[in-house]
């Protein structure tokens, strides 16, 4: 009897982890539900606004606006990619779910940047914050993404808004990491030079450290965008509409048509997003010493206007 306990201890000894999880979740939901609903509200407002805008506007207007936007932010090639990418999405019959996915993605990425960038900056300034946050980020990134879904359903319910929240949870860690890394990797003598000329910590951050860390931070934002796209399929399991749902239904019903439309739509969306967001990484230097508004369509219009004045 005693011997068998020693040999197979786990038959009798068990930590009630499942119970703990259950109890703590029940406690959180019964006490803090209003808080989570309050978090949900502004996200829902923003998401609805973007989604309504995208779905109610004429399709051709959206194609033109987004192509011009990509051209303005990045370059002409990105504009051409956006133009043909959006047309392709429309032609394969994925327009409406793509606009929904677009809205979810845009909302999730905005929220991720809003949370991730300041946290990354804070981590690079205050080492103790980084020491605390680092294991949490490790945990967030190693835990299988499906696991997020259960607590999110319990706290926020199902639908597009919980979908945004679970996406933010999944996609923000790399941005925090890379922002912190980028800022810590800035050449120390360049930081010291800013100090030597009397720059305040804020001035130093804005005009020396952030610009120098920009490539690394942009890699982080790019990662966030790509992970958000990955999450769009997984999040469709908690009833998020859009391209991901097409793929999910396709898997469930072995429906190759829908799975193909959803999958190709996501890839096209990813390409458009990737090319356009790369533009944020360009410096004035990359643009040949031209400001953002001196290039692309706006620059062209401005040049015309100036020309007619003279």
């Amino acid at each position: 009897m005693d011997l068998s306990v020693l040999l197979d201890p786990f038959a009798a000894l068990q930590l009630p982890l499942a119970e703990w999880a259950n109890d703590s979740m029940r406690w959180i939901t019964s006490n803090y539900r209003p808080l989570f609903q309050a978090i949900k509200a502004p996200v829902k407002e923003f998401l609805d606004f973007v989604e309504d805008g995208l779905r109610d506007s004429p399709q051709s207007l959206i194609v033109i606006i987004f192509s011009l936007f990509a051209w303005q932010i990045a370059n002409r090639a990105a504009g051409i990619v956006a133009f043909f990418g959006l047309i392709a999405i429309g032609l394969i019959g994925a327009w409406d779910p793509a606009m929904t996915s677009f809205a979810v993605l845009l909302t999730a990425v905005c929220l991720s940047v809003l949370i991730g960038l300041p946290l990354g900056i804070l981590c690079s300034r205050v080492t103790i914050v980084w020491a605390i946050l680092r294991p949490i980020l490790d945990f967030m990134q190693t835990i299988p993404s499906f696991t997020y879904l259960v607590p999110v359903i319990l706290l926020f319910g199902i639908g597009n808004v919980p979908g945004v929240i679970v996406t933010v949870f999944f996609a923000t860690p790399p941005l925090i990491r890379l922002t912190n890394l980028g800022l810590r990797e800035v050449r120390q003598d360049l930081v010291e030079a800013a100090d030597a000329f009397g720059a305040s910590p804020f001035k130093r951050l804005i005009s020396v450290e952030l610009p120098l860390a920009r490539p690394t931070i942009m890699t982080g934002i790019n990662q966030t965008v790509m992970l958000s796209l990955v999450m769009s399929v997984i999040a469709s399991m908690i009833s998020v509409a859009g391209l991901g749902r097409l793929v999910l239904v396709g898997i469930g019903q072995l429906d190759l048509e829908r799975a193909t439309i959803g999958g190709v739509g996501i890839v096209l969306l990813a390409i458009i997003f990737d090319r356009t967001t790369q533009g944020f990484g360009f410096t004035r230097r990359d643009r040949g010493n031209r400001g953002l508004w001196e290039q692309g369509p706006v620059g062209w219009v401005r040049a015309k206007l100036n020309g007619s004045k003279k």
């Binding site: 003598d189 010291e192 030079a193 030597a196 120098l212 920009r214």
Partner: peptide, 13 residues
């Protein structure tokens, strides 16, 4: 005070 550094430390951006 103005300061000059060994490795110039000019801001490349």
């Amino acid at each position: 005070i103005g300061m000059v550094f060994q490795h110039m430390a000019l801001w490349p951006h």
